[in-house]
């Protein structure tokens, strides 16, 4: 069974006074997430990522299309789905009245769990929040607030975790520890949908990615595939006659072909260094191509 199936999903924010000003946030988005997979949803600001997450969490109703979580329709089975989904919102929630432990106790209660102390203690411990358990949110640093949001999303042990830019504004060390934790969650069988602007991390962490722009999916597949298809690799060759050659080629191109094309035999080479293509480059090309296609269609 798929953890998430999105089929031709559309979301329009209708301007009742002037229909031409209506915003088409999602324009027929389709993709799916396998159970136990980390799926990256990448896209520039305003691409429709948060709208999509809001629709999965039933905060927004889709205008049309299908959205199933573990085989259940999101609109018809909202409550059952909510019990199995954890969400880390993009913006930090600053609950003013309560301390960290109280917040996690309330959050457990919202999901029908009483006496969730063991799980709360585990999360506090794992996310390094134990020393801050009795602090109010306003007393926490930005990174701690982010960790608290992740703890909140996990108190009810969801089967699908939605992470909407969970590392925005977080320092490198904390980002690394968070991604390590996310990888652990995947090993425990959790399916994860992740949006992030840190493409290198998405490249390392995600089994598959979708690149979304202007409400349309421009690419869906493994990070490796998109890199091979859209990025270039740099080959730096030092020749026996003392010359050096720098060749830019498609990431999918084999070294033998490149050497043949440039009429370089192996006997002429002293040293060879290759810099592989990056997701960032592929991402930019996909987004630009998508934008041009979108512009042409309009």
């Amino acid at each position: 069974m798929k953890a998430l199936e999105v089929k031709n999903l559309k979301k329009v924010y209708v301007d009742v006074k002037d229909a031409s000003r209506s915003v088409h946030a999602l324009r027929g988005v389709s993709f799916d997430i396998n159970e136990g997979e980390i799926f990256g949803l990448l896209g520039p600001n305003g691409a429709g990522k948060t709208t999509l997450i809001s629709t999965i969490t039933t905060l927004e109703k889709p205008t049309s299309g299908e959205l199933n979580v573990f085989g259940l329709d999101v609109v018809k089975n909202a409550r059952t789905i909510k019990q199995n989904v954890g969400v880390v919102h993009q913006e930090v929630i600053n609950t003013g009245y309560f301390n960290v432990t109280e917040i996690l106790e309330f959050q457990s209660g919202y999901y029908g769990i009483l006496n969730n102390g063991d799980r709360i203690q585990f999360l506090l411990d794992r996310l390094a929040l134990k020393p801050h358990a009795h602090k109010k949110v306003k007393q926490l640093s930005g990174g701690m607030k982010r960790r608290l949001m992740i703890a909140k999303a996990l108190v009810h042990s969801p089967k699908l975790l939605l992470l909407d830019e969970p590392t925005a504004g977080v320092d490198v060390e904390l980002r690394e520890s968070l991604w390590k934790f996310v990888a652990e969650l995947q090993k425990s069988g959790m399916s994860i949908l992740l949006t992030t602007h840190y493409l290198e991390e998405a490249e390392n962490l995600c089994n598959r990615i979708a690149i979304i722009n202007k409400g349309e999916v421009n690419y869906c597949g493994s990070p490796k595939e998109v890199i091979q298809k859209y990025s270039t690799k740099k080959i730096h060759i030092k020749l026996t006659n003392g010359d050096t050659k720098e060749i830019l080629t498609s990431a999918a191109e084999s070294l033998n072909n490149v050497l043949a094309q440039h009429k370089i035999s192996l006997a002429d080479i002293v040293d060879i260094q290759m810099t592989e293509g990056k997701l960032e480059e592929a991402f930019t090309k996909v987004v630009i191509a998508g934008r041009e296609a979108h512009g042409a269609a309009q």
């Binding site: 969490t57 409550r79 989904v85 969400v87 600053n94 003013g96 959050q107 919202y110 999901y111 029908g112």
Partner: peptide, 18 residues
């Protein structure tokens, strides 16, 4: 209103509460 400021309402909205 304070929940609108803090964002708490989003937590309640995504939880299985009618």
């Amino acid at each position: 209103v304070t929940s609108k400021f803090s964002g708490d309402l989003e937590d309640i909205r995504v939880a299985p509460i009618t």
